[in-house]
Design a protein around this nucleic acid. Structure first.
Length: 762
RNA sequence: UCGGGGUUCGUCUAAAGGCAGGACAUCAGUUUUUGGUACUGAUUAUAGAGGUUCGAAUCCUCUACCCCGAACCA
């Protein structure tokens, strides 16, 4: 069940394990019980529980129940059931943030005592106003300077219920001028006189997510706290809370991209709206991509897990093709669903030359040979059958390989019949086809000298069971219903089609099902809510791929239109780096002077711009120049190689100038790669370049005698590649060079290697 | 005083600075008593412009575009 594929999160974990930063992996899936789980949660569940399985760790199911106003036991129950149904084990029971409320409170008190939190009595609008905006710094709350005793007293009374909702809040004392607004004295506790679904009336103050979540993770010994991208801004606060909590475990928050799927909506709010406004029959409507909806629709958990496997994990903002989900579902069902016949849009087929009242029992397999599974059932064949209306065309269109007047076709597993005549109702619809059969064709042979146009399925009228069949289509017509305007405008009004069908009695057999493939149509399952033995109702799980039906229906897949969110339209545009540098020069005459001077000494305007854009960059260059390095050389190395996080420009100059002298003295002394690595190393650790080249054996080897054997070996080891190269795939030169470089531990002179390789390969 | 992320085939996702690979979708073909499955093949991508390098999707610079952040929601 666990994927072998890696992703950036697994890379981080591998590194953590390798470096000894972690010795185990503990994750958690932390839903708020305020809605039903959907396919997007499934991705997170598969990730978190999958990680635990893969690394032999644990994964907690923990409810983030810190907001009593929105939460409910109904959701807790459904979430637990859904996680279990997906096949993941969270131990004997789920955990709850509300179980830690007392601990949270203690930590809050401790924060107050250490002057790291205070009670703020501004009202909601005032708090917002004091917080500033994206472009403007906030300002300190007037209550920020309250004494510890005062804060303790107020906070105690908040808990005791002395105040109305909204009268006070507890805030962390961080920095109202932080450019990350999450750090502008975030709220930790608010007053809510509201019973909680688990703690009842015990509390009237509740912790905020940003306070509670990191503490929950720390308390539970979580190592990797995986959440979605929109929490990236919260990470510094997460780290602050953990660091100031006094808790010893320090979990690491890692963010990945939430799942986006075309032709659907994923937000809980919109899902709730669909349910409440009756656009669907409930959270478990088979058209909903909730876990419960997919379960009722007939998806198996295996298919969902497989899908999550297929889509991978990354930080890219992405929208997955619905076809991928459909593929996963079909691929899961194909090998396990027994085949039966059902006619969804029936018309009569009468075999005029078949004896009245006669019937033959045919033994037919549940699975086609390629599936290779045992099992068979009896199917009755008779004079009066039903076939699919869509399997007959009076005037067959081009490429139509089914029944038409005068054509022979085979009734699946039965005889071949020729259509003689179509009977229509007053409206002109074909209601019956009258045929002649050939009694020599049962085993598989064609009628003497005739072409058999195709094979169609059928059911015997005498013992057919009628059933309602529900055909589901995607809920939205638009690939991106979130695009703009009201998502409900994009609802697909034809997403549910109800059919009166006939199915063969085989579906009632013991020990088969519940999922079937109705041959040539799709996978079906009795509806778990509405179907009864005497009134069968089938859901279509998913249709078969149908390259005939889609020949002209399918609209050309148009790319998803991404429209800007309302927020991003109004979001202020920030200055570019270039603008910031220009502004810096305007403020600082010294920088302006450098900009002009650097261009005078021959640097390009672009290089001069960057190097005069901040004090640190210019100082580095000046120091290098003072140490005797040419402006151009200094600029080149500084710009291309210098670590961006270095904030000590001056002391590096002597190392750098020595380094540059050494490598300039003999161009082929060390390889470019080694030189680059060495520069970075010196920038960080200082030291003599000459000494390091010696001690680390970085000297480049350029003599044929040393390189030729390696070249020969690489060529000999890769005969296939050599052939491909000789065949014209010259891109493989990179592969060969890479191999030789690796074999020589990066010390071979690459130009030399290329030369020798070229000779060897031609 | 704005800050933080992101951009590789139509879609999703890989590639120690060294073969741009896989999956889905699409299109062909083979097999098939399912217009299914399976198999084979094909098409198609490094946002743009500069720079560093023997060699850049990967490092540097600039530009463009997308997403997130100003709930007493999570």
């Amino acid at each position: 069940m666990t994927s072998k594929a890696s992703d950036f999160i697994r890379d981080i974990i591998d590194a953590d394990l390798e470096s000894g930063k972690r010795t185990e992996v503990r994750t958690r899936f932390p839903p708020e019980p305020n809605g039903y789980l959907h396919i997007g949660h499934a991705k997170s569940i598969c990730l978190n529980f999958g990680l635990a399985q893969q690394y032999g760790g644990t994964c907690n199911l923990r409810f983030d129940d810190t907001n009593p106003a929105k939460e409910d036991q109904e959701y807790v129950d459904s979430i637990c059931a859904d996680v279990r149904w997906l096949g993941f084990d969270f131990g004997s029971e789920a955990l709850f943030a509300s179980d830690y409320f007392e601990k949270f409170y203690e930590i809050a008190v401790s924060l107050i005592k250490r002057g790291k939190a205070y009670v703020c009595s501004l009202n909601e609008e005032e708090i917002r106003a004091y917080r500033g905006s994206l472009k403007d710094a906030g300002k300190d709350s007037p209550h920020r300077t309250r004494t510890v005793d005062e804060n303790l007293d107020l906070f105690g009374r908040m808990r005791a219920g002395e105040f109305e909702d909204g009268a006070h809040v507890l805030r962390a004392k961080i920095d109202m001028r932080a450019s990350n607004m999450k750090m502008r004295d975030p709220l930790l506790y608010r007053i809510r006189h509201q019973p909680h679904h688990r703690t009842g009336d015990t509390w009237c103050i509740y912790p905020m997510y940003d306070f509670a979540h990191p503490l929950e993770d720390a308390i539970e010994g979580i190592t990797h706290s995986i959440c979605t991208l929109e929490f990236e801004n919260n990470r510094p606060l997460y780290d602050w809370v953990v660091a100031n909590s006094g808790l010893s475990n320090v979990p690491e928050q890692i963010e990945f991209a939430r799942l986006g799927l075309d032709y659907t909506v994923m937000s809980k709010r919109k899902l709730l709206q669909l349910v409440e406004q009756g656009h669907v029959s409930g959270w478990d409507d088979p058209r909903m991509l909730t876990i419960s909806g997919m379960r009722r629709r007939g998806y198996r958990p295996e298919a969902i897990v497989r899908f999550c496997d297929l889509i991978g994990v990354s930080k890219n903002n992405s929208t997955v093709d619905m076809g991928k989900l459909e593929y996963a579902v079909r691929d899961d069902l194909n090998p396990i669903a027994p085949r039966v016949m059902a006619v969804l849009r029936p018309i009569r087929l009468t075999i005029t030359n078949y004896e009245e009242g006669k019937s033959e029992s045919l033994t037919v397999p549940f699975f086609p040979p390629d599936i290779g599974k045992p099992g068979e059932r009896e199917v009755l064949f008779g004079k009066n059958l039903y076939i699919e209306a869509t399997d007959f065309e009076e005037e067959p269109s081009k490429g139509f390989r089914r029944m038409a007047p005068g054509r022979w076709i085979r009734l699946r597993y039965g005889y071949c019949v020729r259509c003689d005549e179509a009977v229509k109702d007053e409206a002109g619809n074909v209601t019956e086809v009258r045929c002649t059969f050939d009694d020599s064709t049962l085993g598989g042979s064609a009628p003497e000298g005739e072409k058999v146009w195709g094979i169609i399925h059928w059911v015997n009228a005498a013992d057919a069971r009628s059933a309602e069949v529900r055909i589901y289509d995607r809920l939205f017509k638009s690939a991106n219903p979130d695009a703009g305007g009201n998502f409900l405008d994009y609802l697909n009004v034809d997403s549910l089609e109800t059919l009166k069908a006939f199915v063969e009695p085989g579906v009632l057999g013991e020990g088969v099902g519940p999922r079937f493939q109705f041959e040539r149509q799709g996978y079906f399952i009795p509806d778990s809510v509405d179907s009864r033995p005497d009134a069968l109702i089938f859901n279509r799980v998913i249709g078969l791929k149908d390259s005939w039906a889609k020949r002209d229906v399918e609209e050309p897949a148009k790319p998803i239109e991404h429209t800007k969110s309302a927020r991003s339209v109004t979001r202020p545009k920030s200055r570019s780096k270039a603008e910031i540098r220009a502004a810096a020069r305007e403020r600082n005459r010294k920088l302006a002077e450098r900009f002009a001077r650097y261009q005078d000494v021959g640097l390009s305007e672009g290089d001069a711009d960057v190097l005069s854009g901040s004090i640190a960059w210019g100082d580095r260059l000046e120091a290098l120049a003072t140490a005797g390095v040419s402006w151009e050389l200094g600029a080149k190395w500084l710009l291309n190689e210098h670590p961006r996080d270095d904030d000590e420009p001056i002391p590096f100059a002597s190392e750098a100038s020595e380094f540059l002298a050494v490598i300039e003295a003999s161009e082929s002394r060390i390889s470019t790669a080694a030189a680059r690595a060495l520069w970075t190393e010196l920038a960080k650790e200082r030291g003599s370049a000459e000494e390091r080249i010696r001690s680390q054996g970085l000297e480049q080897v350029s003599d044929d005698a040393s390189i030729q054997p390696i070249v020969d070996k690489v060529v000999a080891d890769n005969p296939g590649k050599v052939e491909a190269y000789k065949g014209g795939k010259h891109a493989l030169m990179g592969f060969f060079v890479g191999q030789v470089m690796r074999a020589s531990q990066g010390k071979a002179n690459a130009e030399k290697v290329k030369e020798l390789l070229a000779t060897a390969l031609n």
